[in-house]
Every structure is written in structure tokens, then in C-alpha cells.
Amino acid sequence: MGLDSYITLKDVVFSRSDRRIFNGVSVEIPRGKITAVMGPSGSGKTTLLRLVGGQLRPDSGSIIVDGQPIGELRRKELYKFREKMGMLFQSGALFTDLSVYENVAFPMRVHTKLPEDMINDIVLMKLEAVGLRGARKLMPSELSGGMNRRVALARSIALDPELIMYDEPFAGQDPIGMGVLVKLIRDLNSSMGLTSVLVSHDVQESLSICHYACIIADGKVIGAGTPSELQDHPSEQVQQFLNGHPDGPVPFHYPSSAATEDFGLAGGVS
């Protein structure tokens, strides 16, 4: 890629139970840029984020995040290292027993000894950045899905992380909510210089904001590059995914025996 990599995955193999999720995946994610990781449902996009965050360990291969081999860190070192990571979960994952304000203040209360008035200022700034300063007294159950995700975004940037990972940020959003999140991801990246990893299968939105993208399918990377490079990618599988063709290398029909057998026509039509 020729750029300074913040995250490097090299020949990563990972299985869950008997199922091989990644079979030698190598990806480089450049520092300070937005990288989209795309792929069909069940291709292991969220698993990739969990591997980068150290919640899962690969069977083999290496994952280097900011120069640190994440799979080799001890538990305490890993928790310390995660203070410079933020992650936006698909569900938002707000703490349901805390208000919006307390949710955003939570990482600061746990990891810093900042005075209360400073925590107050930072929480209000973060909520202002996502447009929800006025909602600080609400409980998570009173928020819409989009607001929930925006509060979670404010919480994930509370400690000014170097890396932020977005897990399906656009899933289930209406067009306005999606537009708001696209703007926020782009603005946060440019204003804070964050390294952003965006996992999604919303092709248009992802390609509109990312600097680089890679597509994962069948346990490996089938295409990577800038959005324009991907659009011209020669792989039929990449083109099928980007353009949403119902049939192609990924077949429309689930593998089955011959239709003539199932319909009882094996002996021919009489």
C-alpha cells in the first residue's frame, strides 16, 4: 500500500468450532485513514474487528496494531492497550442502567482522575459533536436506534482514541440517520486524525467515505484498493458483490441435488 500501516494482519487463520472463518487473511490498514472492510453476511467482518481488538486470538498468523503484536499481549497489557481504541458496536451497546451523560462519562470515570467539572465539559463537547447535547438526561431506552448509535459514538471517542472501529454502523438506519452517521464518521476522521476501520456491507455509503477498502469472502481477501480501483477490479466475485448481482460466483441456489431427483422426474417425463 506504501503508507504507514496502523494495523497489519498477516496470514491470519481463525476457526470457530469446526468452521474456518479466515484462511490466511492479510490486510494492511493505513494510519489516519478510513478503511472499509466489506463482504457478504457471515464472511467474518465482525470477527476481524474482534481479532484486532484482542477479544479473539488467531489460530496462526500475526496481528500487529500500532507496532504491538495484539495476540501476544498479556491480559493486563491488553486492557491498557485498548484505552487507545474505540469501538462502535452494531447495537450501540450502551449501558442500559446509565443515562446518556453517564454513558459518555463512563470511560473517563474509569480510566482518568479528571475533576468532575472537566468531565462535564468533555461529555458535553462529545455529545455536541454528535448533535445530542440536549439528550444528555435521557436513558438509552428513550433513544431511537440512530440516536443510540450516536451516543455510543460519543462514548467511543470520549478518551480521544487513536483507532476507532465501526461495526455495521449503517445497519437498520433510515436515510437521514445514515446520512448523519456518514457525516460523523468523515468529520471525526478528518478533525481528530483517527485511524478508522469501517465494517459494513452497505457498499455505496462505505465507498463514499473510505480511502481504502477490502472485500472479504470465503475466508480470504478477494479484492483491495481505493474505491475507484475496486470499481474496476477484474474479479467477478468483487463485481457481483459491489453491484449486488443475484447470481454469479456466489450462486443464487443453495447447493442441492439435481432438481429432477427432487421432483421425482429421474426416469424422465412420461
Binding site: G53, Q55, K80, M87, F89, A93, P107, V110
Partner: peptide, 9 residues
């Protein structure tokens, strides 16, 4: 999971 990713055990 979100707690883990915030560096809180």
C-alpha cells in the same frame, strides 16, 4: 464486549 473494548474488565 463494549466494556472490554473500553479497557474495562
Amino acid at each position: 464486549s463494549s466494556m472490554e473494548m473500553m479497557g474495562v474488565d
